[in-house]
Structures are given as structure tokens and as C-alpha cells.
């Protein structure tokens, strides 16, 4: 195992809901090394969404420090965080979050537009990313013309296109049937294996967690377990 790509030191997050303070994270420390594929598990309200937002640089911790690939991102401003999200992080959401009325290719191009990549180069990379998830023949389909599994694969292509260090997957199979779910898992495992991309799942589904090398369990804003998976399952079909 090499450099820690995620180094979280004693992070807390407090939300204010009117008069009430909600302690979503109460002091969490975590090291994730480059090339790991792991999952963060916990029941709803355990702080795992907050954890995902922190790791994904969508939000800042109330206290504690977070180094992403050696950079202290805890105190960056909004624009700097946007830049980190653009370059370092790919998101895969349960609800896909594709832009409607926009083709698969255009959806995948989106991160590259904000990275300032020019037209033809951008199209080439977006096409390559779609081909990598097996959608080379669906470039000009809109989300409503694609099946759930295909939509999620477009989302993975979008997460992948800017060559991120980490892919963050939030219940990626939650809205899919088991066959499509297996396909999605297989793609993510392959990206981890072949490209060395660190993949972090946030889930409450033990079946997903069983496909990863390590499971971190959250409860009430604290880490209550951190164990390796002895024999990670390999998702079928694609292999």
C-alpha cells in the first residue's frame, strides 16, 4: 500500500437546525490508501452522507483536518473546492443525476467543459470514457432513452472522464435491478483494478460491501468498526 490518498484527522461536523445543533460527525479519523476499494457502512442518520460530502469536497468540516492526496482541503474556498471536485473526484449517485434533455456524450463532457478542455479533445475523451463502460453505441441517446443500468454507466463515464483520483459511489446500485447492479459493480471493480482508481462506496447494503476490500462502519457520527474483507466477491458477468 502506498501514500494515503484520503487522510482524515478527527473531523467533526455540526449542523444548525434552528435552535438545535446536530452533531453529524463527532470526531472521525480515517486513512484510505491509493488503489483501495472500500465501503463506508452505517444505518441512516449515522453520518455516512455527511462523510461522503466531506470526502467529496462538497462541504467543509466544522473542525479537524482533511488531506486529499496530500493537500489540506479543509480550508479551501468554494472555487478551490470546485476545482478539486473537477480534477480529483468522480461522483456516482444513487439517482444517477444526469442532465435531462442532454445526450450521453454531452453529459460525460460536462466535467471537461468546466476543466476548460477544448471541443474536439473533449469529445474524444468523452467518447473513450463511454466506450470504457460499454456504451460506445449509445453516445447520442438522452437519459430518458436509456435503461437504468445504462444511465448509471453514463454517470460512471462522467465520473471517470476527468481522470480522478477517487470515485465516490453513493448507493450506486440502489435504483437498479440485480443484473444491472452487478454490471455497475463489475465496472467499478475493473476501474479500481486496471486504473488504480480509489473507489469509496457509501452504502447500507452488505452485498455491495462484500465486493470491497475493507468495510468502515459508522454509528452516531463515530467509527465503530474498520475491518478488511477477507475474500472480496468479484461481480459477475463482466469480470
Amino acid at each position: 500500500m502506498s501514500e494515503p490518498v484520503i487522510a482524515i484527522e478527527n473531523i467533526t461536523k455540526v449542523y444548525r437546525l434552528g435552535e438545535v445543533e446536530v452533531h453529524a460527525l463527532r470526531g472521525v479519523s480515517l486513512l484510505v490508501h491509493e488503489g483501495e476499494i472500500m465501503s463506508i457502512m452505517g444505518p441512516s442518520g449515522s453520518g455516512k452522507s455527511t462523510m461522503l460530502n466531506m470526502i467529496g469536497c462538497l462541504d467543509r468540516p466544522t473542525s479537524g483536518r482533511y488531506f486529499l492526496a496530500g493537500v489540506d482541503v479543509g480550508h479551501l474556498n468554494d472555487n478551490q473546492l470546485a476545482h478539486i471536485r473537477n480534477k480529483r473526484i468522480g461522483f456516482v449517485f444513487q439517482t444517477f443525476n444526469l442532465l435531462p434533455r442532454t445526450t450521453a456524450l454531452q453529459n460525460v463532457e460536462l466535467p471537461l467543459i468546466y476543466a476548460g478542455v477544448k471541443g474536439s479533445e473533449r469529445k474524444k475523451r468523452a467518447r473513450a470514457a463511454l466506450e470504457a463502460v460499454g456504451l460506445g453505441d449509445r453516445l447520442n441517446h438522452r437519459p430518458n432513452e436509456l435503461s437504468g443500468g445504462e444511465r448509471q454507466r453514463v454517470a460512471i463515464a462522467r465520473a471517470l472522464v476527468a481522470d480522478p483520483t477517487i470515485i465516490l459511489a453513493d448507493e450506486p446500485t440502489g435504483n437498479l435491478d440485480s443484473k444491472s447492479g452487478a454490471e455497475v459493480m463489475a465496472i467499478l471493480q475493473r476501474l479500481n483494478r486496471e486504473r488504480g482508481i480509489t473507489v469509496v462506496f457509501v452504502t447500507h447494503d452488505p452485498e455491495i460491501a462484500a465486493h470491497t476490500q475493507r468495510i468502515v462502519r459508522l454509528h452516531d457520527g463515530l467509527i465503530v468498526g474498520d475491518e478488511p474483507v477477507l475474500k472480496p466477491k468479484l461481480a459477475g458477468i463482466e469480470g
Binding site: L58, N86, N97, A115, R158
Partner: peptide
């Protein structure tokens, strides 16, 4: 709003 969220998640800055 959701589109704006997606754009921001993939790296759109405020100015964009």
C-alpha cells in the same frame, strides 16, 4: 436547482 447541483458537483465554479 438539481441541474445546478450536478454542475457544481462535477466542478462548476460560482462564476460558471
Amino acid at each position: 436547482t438539481r441541474e445546478i447541483g450536478i454542475r457544481k458537483a462535477v466542478g462548476a465554479k460560482r462564476r460558471d
